[in-house]
């Protein structure tokens, strides 16, 4: 996704210049952007607190500013700077966290971002963008540029299954038609799930959706999604994020508040490090039941109302 984002930034920059700050990250990925942007590409060094506040200072003077780092260095280290300097002033600073969820795999827990969008959504004015596929980046970058609010973009590894035709980007999207339980995905884990669904041989079929923009207040579920739930009021939310602050919790709250009846609800999410061991992204997903086989098994359980 990072390469797709770089191409999207290159196109966006050609249309209208902006500033891009990196916390000394982007090797083997952002070089073309750096060469194109020249002095508008600023390596702020390994100093994320300063980077975010500098971005806020630039934004007070009407500059369009993006800040890039590995996800936890982007949202956790400078959290107070995001809170006080960016969000409380409602400045349109765009934060980009590379490696959402367990994407950095065996690099270890310091590099994982398991609570990023939940944490950031507690802040005023913050908008979150989580692409499911690399092809979403041009639309998302455009939408982020048009927004006049703080924003966070969570990048991951694109996992489009073979022969799968990705539908055009939309903040809510039906990724696979079905006639039973609804699975709502967040981020690129959708690709792994769709790949697993290819071999699904049940008599009924789950309907798979993705959500890519939060909060729900500015991106409420569309009628088609609500209709699917009305038809089959069984929902399974799948995301590489801890339960606290997750889309699962957010949607459950939304459903209760708006009287959306859910007969059954399941939530598959990041559980941290259950075994205390580390490995690839798929290793961690499997430990949390976020691999396609487990997700579909859980969905099947909802189908059969176990």
């Amino acid at each position: 996704m990072r390469n797709a984002a770089t191409r999207a930034w290159m196109s966006a920059y050609a249309e209208e210049p902006f500033l891009f700050l990196t916390g000394d990250l982007g090797y083997n990925a952002l070089e073309s952007l750096r060469d194109e942007m020249q002095d508008h590409f600023i390596n702020a060094g390994i100093a994320e607190q300063n980077m975010v506040s500098v971005a806020a200072g630039l934004a007070t003077q009407d500059f369009d500013v993006w800040c890039y780092s590995i996800a936890p260095f982007c949202y956790a280290r400078p959290f107070e700077q995001i809170r006080n300097d960016v969000c409380q002033h409602d400045l349109p600073v765009k934060l980009v966290g590379n490696g959402g969820g367990y994407a950095y795999g065996a690099m270890g827990s310091s590099h994982h971002a398991l609570e990023d969008y939940g944490t950031l959504l507690t802040l005023p004015n913050m908008h979150v963008y989580v692409p499911s596929f690399a092809g979403d980046l041009p639309d998302i970058v455009t939408r982020m540029r048009e927004s006049q609010h703080p924003a966070y973009l969570r990048l991951g590894h694109c996992e489009v299954p073979d022969r799968y035709r990705v539908p055009a980007y939309a903040p809510w999207r039906r990724l696979a038609a079905g006639n039973d339980v609804v699975i709502l995905t967040v981020g690129p884990i959708a690709g792994a799930l769709l790949a697993g669904l290819h071999d699904w041989d049940g008599s009924t079929r789950p309907e798979v959706w993705s959500i890519s923009e939060l909060p729900l207040e500015s991106n409420p579920p569309p009628l088609e999604f609500l209709t699917a739930l009305e038809r089959n009021p069984r929902l399974c939310v799948v995301e590489e994020h801890v339960a606290q602050g997750s889309v699962g919790q957010i949607f459950a709250h939304f459903a209760l508040k708006h009287g959306i009846p859910l007969e059954q609800f399941d939530h598959l999410c990041a559980l941290g490090y259950p075994s205390g061991r580390y490995g690839s992204q798929n290793f961690h997903r499997k430990e949390c039941g976020l691999d396609a086989a487990t997700i579909l098994k859980r969905a099947e359980a909802l189908v059969h109302r176990v």
Partner: peptide, 24 residues
């Protein structure tokens, strides 16, 4: 121009503002 109160925020903010002036 900016809210402060938690120490260590003003100088990075001011640096961003100074950089904005320098750019323009």
């Amino acid at each position: 121009p900016v809210a402060t109160g938690s120490l260590g925020h003003g100088l990075p903010l001011a640096s961003g503002m100074a950089m904005a002036k320098k750019f323009r």
